[in-house]
Design a protein around this nucleic acid. Structure first.
Lengths: 150, 150
DNA sequence: TACTATTCCTATCATTTTAGTTGGGATTGA
DNA sequence: TCAATCCCAACTAAAATGATAGGAATAGTA
């Protein structure tokens, strides 16, 4: 990663997978990992781990065994993209100034701190302000193919 | 990196080093790598490489040999933080959707693309809108110590 | 000239992170 | 019973990160 926005592939997979399940909400039919993997072009065994983690976080539920799969049980409008990013990426903070007990080279405060905070809060605002329902709305308005419904 | 804002340690060092030189602008006296390293708490040999790169980019100039060092030759008001971040981090793009020829899982367009673009442009706006002169202004207003002047 | 402080160039390296892969076990519906 | 499916944990290959090291080139100074 490197250019400003730091969102790992894994996290992008998680978001796409959750989006795929959100599209089916509030149906109680489960969707298999294989189907999500195919629709969203994610390596299947890697996706397994990601869905397992999302399940642990309470964002989705699973049904095991034959005819099993995953299903979203909370409303897509109640989950924001930002929440999922934080959940998947964890509490890592790459900016020294923003770390707890981060060291600033100047005792009087660092010239960059405000800037990093501003950038971070701007992203937080955008990502926390976008729910999966919003994504679905956009998706629909732009006339994407619902090939899974055909 | 990992949590939203993806700015490497190396890049933070580059920004701090350049800021340190900007503080001395428009003086033509050079500053040694050793002094910058000490003031900004950056590993010296690593900083050497970073300054070398900034020089190649035309942001600073060097004087070699005894009594040598680095000096800023362009106005701090003409260089933005965003420009330096891009210069140091390079053209890497971690978001699939934003890559040239990036593959979106949906042929009709990806539900996330707009979101990534919005986030990216928000950061660009913030970082490109902040020059090193702005940082110095902030630094001064907040009463930081200019211990190198004492 | 010799000496020393400095930047410059290139290679190497250790650690961590990333992005998976693999193997096998547990569970369930038919 | 059997096949489809999720579940768990370990392993791994590649890349990125954050340096470290050696020595060459340069320039001021005695």
């Amino acid at each position: 990663m490197s250019s400003l926005l730091g969102v790992s592939q894994k996290c992008q997979y998680a978001l796409r997978a959750l989006f795929e399940l959100a599209l089916r909400y509030p149906s109680e039919n489960v969707t298999t990992v294989a189907e999500i993997a195919e629709k969203q072009q994610i390596p299947l065994r890697f996706l397994e781990q990601i869905l397992s983690k999302l399940r642990a976080g309470g964002y989705i539920e699973s049904r095991r065994g034959n005819q099993g799969g995953y299903v979203m049980t909370v409303s897509p409008s109640s989950i924001s993209v930002g929440e999922i990013i934080r959940f998947i990426e964890g509490p890592n903070e790459s900016i020294d100034c923003l770390k707890r007990n981060g060291r600033c080279p100047f005792t009087g405060g660092c010239a960059f701190k405000d800037l990093w905070e501003k950038a971070k809060s701007s992203l937080t605002e955008i990502f926390d302000g976008t729910s999966f329902q919003d994504l679905i709305g956009k998706h629909n308005r732009e006339g994407c193919l619902f090939d899974y419904m055909i």
